[in-house]
Amino acid sequence: MISLVRYLAVDVFRGQRYLAPLLVFLGVMGMLFSSDAGQPLEAYSGSSALLYPIAAWMAVVVATSEDVVRREITVVSAGGWSRVLTAAALVSVLFALAMALLAAVWPVVTNPHPYTAGEFFVGLAAHTGCALLGVGVGLMFARPVFDSIGRTVLAVFSVVVLTYPLGRATPLGWVLDALGHNRASLSLLGTVAVGVALVSAAVVAGVRRA
C-alpha cells in the first residue's frame, strides 16, 4: 500500500494539476489574513470554509491524475480496484491534512491576537473536518463513480455550492457556526467523523462502480 500511495503521489506531483487548487488556496489565505482577522477561533472560520472546496478540487485532481488506461494497468498491478482507490483516498487525505495544518498555523503566525495551544488544536480539528468533507465529496463524484470529468466538475461544484446555504443542517455548518461564535464544540469532532465516513463511502462507491 505504501508503494502504491507513493506512486500515486509522485504521479500527482509530476502532473502539476495540483498547482491550481494549491495556488488558489494560498492566494485566498493570503487575502484572509492580510490584516486583523478577528478573535482566534473566529479567524479560522474563513479558512475552514475555504478548505472544503479546495480539498474537493484536490481530491478530483488526485482521482483523475492517471488517465483511464494507465489506471487499468495500476489496478491490475496492485491487485484490484479496492487497493488503488484506497491509496488514492489516502493521497487525497494527506494533501488535505497538509493544507489543514498550514491553514491552522497561518493565523498563529500572522494574526495579531495571541493563540493558545487549545485554540490551535480546535482550529486544526475544524480544518481537518472541513478538508475530509471536501475529499469525500470530491472522490464521491470522480472516476470511477463518474467517468466524465465534466459531470464530475458539475456535481462537485453543485454539492459544494449547495452546502453553504444549508447552514447548520450540514457538518460544514456545525464547524462554521462554532467558529463564528468563537467557541469550541464537540460538533467539530462530529464533522471529522462524518468526513472519515464520507471518504470511506466514496471508496466503497468507487469499488462498486468500477
Binding site: 509522485v10 488506461v69 494497468i73
Partner: peptide, 13 residues
C-alpha cells in the same frame, strides 16, 4: 500482467 490496447502517450513520469 496487463497491457492495454493503447498505452497512454501523455505520461509525465
Amino acid at each position: 500482467g496487463y497491457v492495454p490496447e493503447r498505452f497512454p502517450s501523455d505520461v509525465k513520469m
